[in-house]
Design a protein around this nucleic acid. Structure first.
Length: 261
DNA sequence: ATGGTCGGTGTCCGA
């Protein structure tokens, strides 16, 4: 089984790129974030025509939006809400062999890393706290699960181009790393990508639009993740990051991340 | 230290 995650920053604008990605990598399941459209405008016919007939979508106008599209059947759709908002950041599907897939879009958190003055940063921290409490309360680490998505945090020193330069930049502050690590440890999630790429090796999944020479300067961050629970950790075969999509026409600022099981 | 660019039914907001 190949599972992929991609923050595509508008599914309608990026549809040709997503179809090209599906043709090239043939994932069984693709989880999307920032689809940015209501469900009635989601291009499900195009995905079905490409062999991806099974879809769970949760979208809203203009912002956020998550989806799971699959060529294998998906069980009942579940949409979870956090921080008393209904903002389309978490959708769940279960495969026929009982693997529960969580597609997540964690709030970016704004610019100022201080919850006292920045409501968006407070929302991000609260979102992490609620998830961290929810996993051990509702899910056992013995259940086969995959958590993917744009977590908007680069936890490791080599998940960013400069650890020192980004310590006060939202996505790499100590409080965010601490809370993401607490969520990971809550039921023993295994980082399936770092399982294959050593921690001392730079690895990024996002390069800002604002940096036009992003490839030369290579100031990236690893914001997109795939985690698995222990029963699936033994079954990991490989991981890859499709960096070349960042060079495609009208690219997303994020690139796809994949794991084979 | 600063500003840089995207996408959305938008003339600002969120990333």
């Amino acid at each position: 089984m190949r599972i992929a995650t991609w923050n595509i920053n508008s599914v309608r604008l990026r549809l040709p790129s997503v179809l090209e990605f599906l043709d090239k990598y043939q994932p069984d399941v693709l989880c999307l974030q920032e689809t940015k459209t209501q469900d009635q405008f989601f291009p499900n016919e195009a995905f079905a025509a490409h062999g991806y007939a099974h879809m769970h979508i949760a979208g809203m106008k203009s912002y956020n939006g998550v989806a799971i599209i699959s060529r294998i059947p998906l069980g009942a759709r579940e949409v979870r809400h956090w921080c008393q908002k209904e903002d389309c950041r978490h959708i769940v599907a279960t495969t026929e062999d009982g693997i529960e897939i969580h597609c997540l879009y964690i709030p970016a958190g704004g610019d100022i890393p201080d919850p006292a003055v920045n409501d968006k940063f407070a929302h991000k921290l609260q979102f992490l706290d609620e998830l961290t409490a929810w996993w051990p309360a509702e899910r056992s680490s013995a259940r086969p699960m995959i958590l993917v998505g744009d977590l908007n945090i680069a936890p490791l020193e080599h998940d960013v181009w400069s650890h020192k330069a980004l310590l006060k930049i939202v996505s790499h502050t100590p409080i965010e790393v601490e809370k993401l690590t607490a969520m990971q440890n809550s039921i023993g999630w295994v980082d399936a990508v770092r399982h294959f790429v050593p921690a001392d090796q730079k690895l990024y999944t996002w390069w800002s639009y604002r940096n036009l020479d992003w490839k030369i300067s290579d100031r990236g961050r690893r914001l997109d993740h795939i985690w698995v629970t222990p029963p699936l950790a033994d079954r990991l075969i490989g991981a890859q990051v499709a960096k070349e999509t960042r060079e495609w026409l009208q690219p997303s600022d994020h690139v796809p991340v994949m794991v084979d099981l």
